[in-house]
């Protein structure tokens, strides 16, 4: 298990990256609330506003005995969760050597790509696999789509993240329910469980 032994006094860092509208902020919020329940000091930093309009987004979580800065340095993240392939590459330099990368095998073309001005890279996953030892590839978008709504892809990734962080020992379902309207509970809980199985 790549992250084994993480329960120590050292502050740990997680970074969630994706495209505005993919649900990175909600995922981070649930994750942060869970870490808090486990007794850690937690700080989380997110940027909203303009970037939400389909731009590249990231949220950062740091937890430990006592956390000062909410911001992560290059090469510091113990876990990088990428909601989109290109975003995994964009933020890869945040990942600590030996750290874990969870990547959603899913493509979202940005406007310069759609307009034919820039190219979406080929074989991104293969190249990431060669470089990063601890990589977990999940088709979170497809899984969520099969469950009924692509928007639940964030909960698939959350499930995978908590499994790899070895913090399944908490009522995550309860936290998901707290953070979502009742009519979305079932699909999101199913998505979360599917993510746990995948990791």
């Amino acid at each position: 298990m790549p992250l084994k032994g993480w329960v120590s006094e050292m502050t740990k860092s997680l970074i969630l990256v994706g495209v505005g509208g993919q649900g990175t902020i909600l995922t981070s919020k649930i994750l942060a609330e869970g870490l808090l329940k486990l007794g850690f000091d937690v700080k989380m930093s997110e940027i909203h506003g303009m970037a939400q309009r389909g731009g590249s987004v990231n949220t950062q979580i740091r937890f430990g005995k006592k956390v000062h800065s909410p911001m992560i340095s290059m090469g510091e993240a113990n876990l990088l969760v990428a909601f989109e392939k290109v975003e995994a590459i964009r933020y890869l330099d945040y990942l600590k050597p030996g750290g874990t990368l969870i990547v959603n095998d899913h493509e979202i073309y940005s406007l310069p790509v759609l307009a034919g001005k820039e190219k979406y890279p080929e074989k991104a996953i293969e190249k990431l696999e060669k470089l990063v030892e601890n990589i977990v590839i999940i088709k979170a978008a497809d899984i969520a789509k099969d469950l009924g709504n692509i928007r639940a892809q964030n909960m698939v990734l959350l499930g995978a993240a908590v499994k790899l962080l070895e913090i399944l020992d908490l009522d995550w379902v309860d936290l998901i329910k707290d953070n979502l309207p009742q009519k979305f509970h079932e699909i999101n809980i199913n998505a979360f469980n599917a993510g746990v199985k995948q990791a």
């Binding site: 495209v19 590459i89 890869l92 990942l95 790509v113 190219k119 890279p121 470089l131």
Partner: peptide, 13 residues
């Protein structure tokens, strides 16, 4: 840290 020498597209809002 890790670096992947690969050109990636920009993603403006």
């Amino acid at each position: 840290t890790y670096t992947l020498d690969m050109e990636i597209p920009s993603r403006p809002p």
